[in-house]
Amino acid sequence: MSAPPLKIREDLVSKIQAHGGETYPHECCGALLGRDGGGLREVLGLLPLSNRRDDSPRNRFEVTPEDVRLAEKEARGREWELVGWYHSHPDAPARPSEYDREHAWPWYSYVIVSIEKGTARDMTSWRLQDDRAAYDSEPVEIVRSSASISSD
């Protein structure tokens, strides 16, 4: 089953890419804040977070439960929801790894940006299947920063 597209403004895409470039060769991570409902999911803001995996930050990231609660609080404060997470794959494809799948939660959107030699390349989004067996690719619809994506 293919998921409906994840809408995200181009300036937020640029911020995710810049975050991945800043932390390269380590993985970056952050929360996707926005709205979900009526078959539409849209990202309206980001909460960049610190990668807590000090032991292996080149190919692992971790967001602590405290940071998850912080992200939920931030979303609630803006009357949004915590709709997913982003992270980078330094010098690796923007595809979920087996480690990603093992640790994923359903429902959330997982945006992955590939950073090759410090420069952002592909960006993809994924959602875990109900049976945890695999991810479904979630199409990403990038909208111009001046557009109101809620009014589409």
Partner: peptide, 19 residues
Amino acid sequence: IVPSIAGGAPSHSPRGGSI
């Protein structure tokens, strides 16, 4: 019940490796 979030790139082979 509070999630923590984890993941990361394939550890064994850069670009084009299996997932």
